[in-house]
Design a protein around this nucleic acid. Structure first.
Length: 126
RNA sequence: CAAGCAGGCCGCCUUAUCGCCAACGAAUUUAUUCGGUGGAGGAAAUUCCGGACACCAAAGGGCGGCAUAGUGGGUAACACCCACCGGUCUCGUUUCGGUUUUCCGAGGCGGGAUCAGGACUAGUGCAACAGAAAGGAUGUACAGGUAAUGCUGUAGUGAAAUCAGGUAAACUCUAUGCGGUGCAAUGCCAUGUAAACCGGUGUUUGCAAGCGGCCCGCUUGCUACCGGAGGGUAGGCAGCUAAAGGUUUUUGGCAACAAAAACCGGAGAUAAAUGAUAAGGGGAAUCCCGGUUAGCCGGGAGGAACAGAAUCCGGAUUACAGGCCUGCUUUUUUA
């Protein structure tokens, strides 16, 4: 199973991120929030995923780094849940909305639930 | 051996698996695969000083403004570092005097801590209590003196009474230094469809903008003419890491440091890499059990601080579990 998470799959375009925050929909499961938007640009063929931890909630750079790394790890292990289910690519942004630290195990569980919610919402619409 | 003080160093390790970033080398299906290699800190933090570098005019002149403040040295430079001098505090020791048990006062020598440590014979301001009077000063008593007068001395208040008084982390003065903005600097590529952009030529006046707050001065634009520039995405590349680098030895120097030689040469991301999991090792505080008069000994549980590079250096400041080393002081035990 492909568990890599390389450059190509990361959300890096500033423009795309701006559009995502303006027009994207979201699902929430504490302490995670997922903002998503279908990518209309035909050049881009795969999912683009980013993670974010607000400076307001986690004060130190070490703390934010730690949580972002755990989020990437949790996504990497479970990304098949979303990437294989849709014909069109999406831009995804996971945002951590708690002040407290979290273990990888717990984060994985929440990540899976958020992804399930996302699947439901998008499949219903189609 | 223990405690305290001062200074310095380190600040989890090993293996496996799954991943991330970088340059390199192969292979091919030419954008992918494979391979081994390298990949956070002593503070990377605060952004408080000082530089390098870049652009703004060859960064220019004046006023204003800011910073620094014993002397000498080090350095690219500094508010940093070193040495010395001085003041203040403190400890030890010693001498002298009073008293003589303690104790008190003065001085010498030695150690430690600390100090924005230039100038109040330029001007201005400020000063509790006491005192007649505290800054263009001058009243009482006694004594002296004069043509005359606080003119002179003493007493009295006070830290200080015409003494070159005190005070500059008071204005100020003096000396020295400082232009501004910062790698989101800056350069290149790509983009542009039109009152825009780029290049060139010409340029009188006026206006506007920029060059630190003002003035000077300088530059640019507005105008005219000529030429250039059409897929999509909206970014990409350089700057970008070799550093006033480090280690060791020798020489010079009290030292900071400098010179020479040999060796090592070390992250470069950009919604931002350096991570996750498992096993083993290591283990402080604390807790539990057993033994012991106690110190303590044995076993088990427990599990590691502050903190993340963002152009690069030198410092300062602040945060920090635990461990190690060196020196000094003190106490106890043993020999």
């Amino acid at each position: 199973m492909d568990e890599s998470f390389g450059k190509d799959e990361k959300l890096k375009s500033k423009k795309l991120i701006d559009i995502l925050f303006q027009e994207g929909k979201s699902v929430k499961k504490y302490p995670l929030k997922l903002i998503y938007l279908p990518i209309t640009n035909p050049e881009i063929t795969n999912f683009k995923t980013g993670v974010s931890v607000p400076k307001k909630l986690v004060k130190t750079a070490v703390g934010r780094n730690r949580i972002k790394r755990l989020m990437r790890e949790a996504f990497r292990k479970n990304k098949y849940l979303v990437t294989s289910n849709f014909p069109k690519p999406y831009a995804l942004m996971f945002i951590y909305i708690s002040r407290d630290e979290i273990s990888l195990e717990e984060l994985k569980k929440v990540m899976i639930k958020v992804m399930e919610k996302f699947n439901e919402a998008e499949n219903k619409q189609r």
